[in-house]
């Protein structure tokens, strides 16, 4: 997607997250946070020219994108477009320091995805604090990366 569209997605997912109780609604609270963070990171990667801002949307299969056309959309193989998750697909490039930090923090967040959302690990205040703290650090680093690339987050 284009950078502005990623920033808009970030805001939309954050608005969703605010309506959830972090423990009672952990699954969708977490999913909103994960999606918001991934959107902002995609925007920052585009802003740095590491990945391409195009009208192509990530599918569940790495390197397969949904590309709009006159009748809706079709699949295409593309490379270095939006990430589905941090590390998916993997980027074989050196990241700027701020984005390295953002990726590191997002990797902490991602550890909670399958065991706590798709699985049945106990949802505790400690889990919420760990995820929320990593998200705050991740977003601070991503905003810094956007600023360094001349994009106002």
């Amino acid at each position: 997607m284009q950078i502005e569209a990623h920033l808009e997605k970030f805001e939309r997912f954050e608005a969703c997250r605010r309506q959830f109780d972090a423990v009672e609604d952990f699954e969708l609270w977490y999913w909103s946070l994960l999606s918001a963070g991934t959107a902002l990171i995609n925007g920052a990667l585009h802003a740095h020219g590491i990945t391409r801002a195009e009208d192509a949307f990530a599918t569940q299969v790495p390197d397969v994108y949904a590309v709009p056309d006159a009748t809706g959309w079709h699949h295409e193989i593309r490379f270095l477009n939006d990430l589905i998750h941090v590390g998916l697909p993997a980027l074989e490039v050196e990241l700027p320091p701020a984005l390295r930090t953002a990726f590191h923090e997002m990797e902490i967040i991602e550890r909670y995805r399958d065991p706590w959302v798709r699985g049945d690990q106990p949802i505790t205040a400690e889990v919420v604090t760990t995820v929320a703290s990593a998200f705050d650090r991740c977003m601070a680093a991503t905003r810094q990366a956007l600023s360094e690339a001349g994009v106002a987050p």
């Binding site: 997607m1 569209a5 997605k9 949307f57 990530a58 569940q60 949904a66 709009p68 809706g72 959309w73």
Partner: peptide, 13 residues
């Protein structure tokens, strides 16, 4: 449901 995700969740159609 999965078919909606690229266009409307990760995309903005």
């Amino acid at each position: 449901v999965e078919s909606f995700r690229p266009a409307y969740v990760r995309g903005n159609l």
